[in-house]
Simulated assay, not measured.
Amino acid sequence: MAQPLSASRMVEILRAEGLTVHEVRSWRTHHRNAKGPWGPVNGVMIHHTVTSGTEASVNICYNGYSGLPGPLCHGVVDKKGHVHLVGNGRANHAGLGDRHVLAAVVDERPLPADNEADTDGNRHFYGFECVNLGDGKDPWPEAQKEAIEKVAAAICRYHGWSERSVIGHKEWQPGKVDPRGFTMDGMRGRIAGRLKDGGDADPSPEPPAKPAPKPPAKPAPKPSYEPFPGPAFFRAGRRSPVITAMGRRLVAEGCGRYQQGPGPEWTEADRRSYAAWQRKLGFSGTDADGTPGRTSWDRLKVPDVK
C-alpha cells in the first residue's frame, strides 16, 4: 500500500531504469479522479491493446472511446520498447475485479483464481497497455517484453514491492484474457531477477582510481543488535523504539508495507511488513503470520536502540 507516484517521479524512475519515455500531450493532468479515488496503490497491471501501430494505440489509450473515456492506462509500451505516458491519476484500465486477488497482491503471495468482480481496480493499480493484437499470433518482440519488465521493476523498486505486486488483467477480472502471448509467471520471474540484480549495470564503467596508501585503521566496533524480545512483546498497543527500529530495517529490506511510518506503536502495518520479511526468508503458513520469531528476528539485525 503506497501513495501514487507524482508525474515527475514516474518519468524519473522509468528513465533511470534505462527506458525511452515519451510524454504525450497533457498526460500529467490527464486523469479520471473526478469519478473516484486514486490510491492507495498496491500494484502494477499489464494489458494488451488489441490494436496495431504505435500512434493509433497511443491515441486511443489517451482519448478513450465512446462509453469509456481516456486515459485507458498510465502508459503504453510499444513494440520498440518505448513507453508513452498518457495518464497520471485514476485511469479506466482495470475495472472491477476480485477482492481476494487484491488481498494476495497486498500480502505478496500467490494469486487465487479471479472469480468475482467486486473491487475497484482503477483505484489500486498502475496500468500499462502493450501494443499487441492479442490474437496469439501477433509477436512480442524482446525489446517490448524487456520494457514491460523494466517498467514494472522500476515501480516495484520505488515502492519496495516484489514481483508479486505485478499482475495481468486476466488475473484480476473474470473473462479477461490479456496479456496474451506470454505468461505472467514468466514475466514475474524476469522482474524478480531484475529487482535482485538492481537493474542495468554500466556497460563500460571507468576503472576506479588507485587509492593513496593509508595508515592502518583501528578495527570498527562490532555492531550491536537488539535481542529478540519474545513473541508476546508484539501485541496491539505496545509502544517501543525497538518497533520503530524494526520497521526501518523492514523498509530497508524491501518489505515495508507502511502507508505512514514506521513508528513506535505495533500496528497491522508492522505485522504485514514482518510477514513479508518472513516470506522473503522462505517461511510460509503460520511461520509467516507476521509475528516475529527468534530466527527471523536475528536475521533482520535490528540495531540496538539503547
Rank of each mutant, 00 (worst) to 15 (best):
residue 99 R to A: 15
residue 297 W to H: 10
residue 249 R to N: 12
residue 107 D to T: 00
residue 220 A to I: 07
residue 153 A to I: 12
residue 192 A to Y: 12
residue 200 D to G: 07
residue 167 I to T: 07
residue 120 D to K: 12
residue 180 R to P: 06
residue 9 R to H: 10
residue 259 Q to C: 03
residue 265 E to Y: 07
residue 233 F to A: 07
residue 33 N to F: 08
residue 201 A to R: 15
residue 79 K to I: 03
residue 250 L to P: 02
residue 212 A to P: 13
residue 157 R to W: 12
residue 161 W to G: 11
residue 244 T to L: 10
residue 256 G to T: 01
residue 191 I to K: 00
residue 293 G to N: 04
residue 9 R to T: 09
residue 187 M to K: 04
residue 281 L to Y: 13
residue 212 A to V: 09
residue 19 L to P: 04
residue 260 Q to Y: 08
residue 95 G to F: 00
residue 73 C to M: 12
residue 212 A to N: 12
residue 247 G to F: 07
residue 66 S to W: 10
residue 242 V to R: 04
residue 257 R to E: 15
residue 8 S to M: 05
residue 140 W to A: 05
residue 23 E to Q: 15
residue 88 N to C: 04
residue 159 H to N: 13
residue 204 S to Q: 14
residue 60 I to M: 11
residue 257 R to W: 07
residue 256 G to Y: 04
residue 303 P to I: 06
residue 91 A to P: 01
residue 136 G to K: 08
residue 33 N to Q: 06
residue 6 S to I: 01
residue 220 A to P: 07
residue 157 R to A: 14
residue 192 A to F: 09
residue 139 P to K: 14
residue 265 E to T: 15
residue 223 P to C: 11
residue 225 Y to P: 14
residue 267 T to L: 08
residue 66 S to R: 11
residue 259 Q to P: 00
residue 70 G to C: 02
residue 36 G to C: 11
residue 220 A to K: 15
residue 127 G to M: 00
residue 32 R to C: 03
residue 189 G to H: 09
residue 212 A to E: 15
residue 304 D to M: 04
residue 282 G to V: 08
residue 66 S to Q: 14
residue 172 W to K: 05
residue 104 A to S: 01
residue 287 D to H: 15
residue 9 R to L: 08
residue 104 A to H: 03
